[in-house]
Nucleic acid binder design. Sequence first.
DNA 1: AAATTGATGTAAGGTTTCCTTACATATAAT
DNA 2: ATTATATGTAAGGAAACCTTACATCAATTT
Lengths: 129, 129
Amino acid sequence: MNDQDRRSMPLFAIGTVMKLTELSARQIRYYEEHQLISPERTTGNQRLFSFNDVDKLLEIKNLLDKGLNMAGIKLLLTDKVNKAAEKNETMKITNKELREVLRNELSEAGRFGKSSLRQGELSRFFVKR
Amino acid sequence: MNDQDRRSMPLFAIGTVMKLTELSARQIRYYEEHQLISPERTTGNQRLFSFNDVDKLLEIKNLLDKGLNMAGIKLLLTDKVNKAAEKNETMKITNKELREVLRNELSEAGRFGKSSLRQGELSRFFVKR
DNA sequence: AAATTGATGTAAGGTTTCCTTACATATAAT
DNA sequence: ATTATATGTAAGGAAACCTTACATCAATTT
């Protein structure tokens, strides 16, 4: 079993994810509805989230705090742009530029919630190689 | 938040732990009853297990496979012996000897279950420093 | 300004998972 | 043979989760 397998293992119930991310169940389900995440299900249809899912949710939260809407967040998180970028120089630049543009359009922001876990932090559960 | 905090965070419902360890709920609760683990609880009294708990359960499973009984496992896992050993040369030796004795009393063992996760493996979720 | 859209709250009714307690069982120890 | 150990199983109840639907409130659009 490699890291990627571990990161995508269905582990957490939604209650745990709520605490981990400080998002409401409504929000989490809403983001799933809009295909930002797609947690596995138990045989009884209950959601089980992976580390990847939680990391994504933390990133979503981060971008929400900065004022982005679903569309923007989707653009930044969606495979389309980011994954394509990894394999394509031109895309990579486009992606970078996109991030810049979005970043510049942000309100100066800065006020953080009282989140106990910051975006990307859960990743440290994993071994970096 | 440091590694130890992360390792002891209450994260997993018992169903998840069952899959992770391939132990029955009955077994897991039994080991708690006998103070081998002590998972947190939700406000509604449902168990939430940490990485440490799961790692311990995997170790318990390992020792079970080797024919140890609760008493032996308890000796090997319990703070008393191991933690004390870290700080005391004499104890350390005693502990080592104890391990030897127990090891020698094992049936030659060897047959493993079809466990998808081996003892210690979950630890790799964490950063080793 | 009024209507629409986007994002989240909340409530109802139902299902699944988990809880404890208790008793059954099989193997091992005495 | 009896007792102890470790686990299975079942019952009844509580907690957590599910979907659906409607409410709300801010931001857009008309």
